[in-house]
């Protein structure tokens, strides 16, 4: 039993190890530095990374060009391990909270990072991205996964100073079982969002159909179930930064300086 405990303790110290964090961060950085330099020269392979979730990209595109893309899953695994390492650090910190509460800011940043890594993984496994979907005014389109229906109600130009048209406002309505869930005037930087679903109008135009001019909008429809978790992680990180800054100046004013390990 004691041998098991000591084996577990050794594993736990490795998982919480600061040196492991440095090694993983360094390996992920070096891997991505080298790999990312291939990106501009191979747009056919790497440009769709923003158009698809990572799982679909790995299956549809990366497998066709393994020599160019192997570094992406390797870097992703290293970042996942780093996320696991930060979670273990946070748990270890919670177990010793009485003596380490002054480090709350730093550990909030760790926790936020872990949440963002989880959210990224979730969104890139269970989400979807669909860009350039044309929807006509008055048309209803079904959207997975909640049995939602999106309707484009109106497209109107918004004039800037001097009367020049600067952008288009799209009135979008989201329904489920004919009951209205949300209605917004979507425009640049103001999308329709609902539980991880984000609808962004990217362009608009008019086309003759059945002898009548019909207006349509091109929509980017993305679904990321981890988006709200990522936001929680970002808030945790932001708060962690503010607390860490405050405690840093407190420690420096009392003459405290990093210890040698």
């Amino acid at each position: 039993m004691s041998a098991n405990l000591s084996w577990f303790q050794r594993l736990w110290s490795l998982l919480c190890s600061l040196k492991l964090a440095i090694v993983l961060a360094s390996c992920a950085t070096l891997m991505a530095v080298g790999g990312s330099l291939l990106m501009p020269a191979n747009p056919r392979v790497f440009a769709p990374l923003d158009e698809k979730i990572l799982k679909d990209w790995l299956v549809d595109i990366a497998l066709q060009s393994p020599a160019l893309t192997w570094w992406v899953p390797v870097a992703a695994v290293l970042v996942l391990l780093l996320g696991l390492n930060t979670l273990c650090c946070v748990i270890d910190w919670l177990l010793h909270l009485r003596s380490r509460w002054r480090k709350s800011g730093e550990y909030l940043i760790h926790f936020g990072f872990f949440l963002i890594v989880c959210a990224f993984l979730w969104g890139n496994l269970a989400g979807y991205r669909a860009g350039g979907q044309p929807i006509f005014v008055g048309q209803r389109v079904e959207l997975p996964p909640y049995g939602l229906v999106l309707k484009l109600e109106e497209v109107k130009p918004l004039a800037g100073p001097g009367g020049r048209i600067m952008e288009l406002a799209n009135t979008l309505a989201l329904y489920r079982d004919d009951s209205l869930l949300k209605q917004v005037e979507a425009r640049v930087n103001h999308p329709l969002t609902w539980r991880g679903l984000v609808v962004i109008p990217t362009d608009a135009g008019q086309v003759m159909m059945g002898g009548r001019l019909r207006t349509y909008s091109l929509m980017t429809v993305n679904y990321d179930p981890g988006a709200n978790l990522a936001l929680v992680g970002a808030v945790a990180m932001g708060c962690g930064v503010l607390v860490a800054l405050f405690s840093f100046y407190r420690k420096r004013s009392s003459g405290d300086h990093p210890d040698i390990e």
Binding site: A25, S26, A32, M39, H190, A227
Partner: peptide
């Protein structure tokens, strides 16, 4: 990026390198 393009992490090379800068200084 999320409200403008619908995703919070972009794989454009500047986005990737900004993350690397963060990771490096985090280390």
């Amino acid at each position: 990026a999320y409200v403008a393009w619908g995703y919070y992490f972009s794989w454009n090379i500047k986005g990737v390198w900004s993350s690397l800068v963060w990771l490096f200084y985090g280390g």
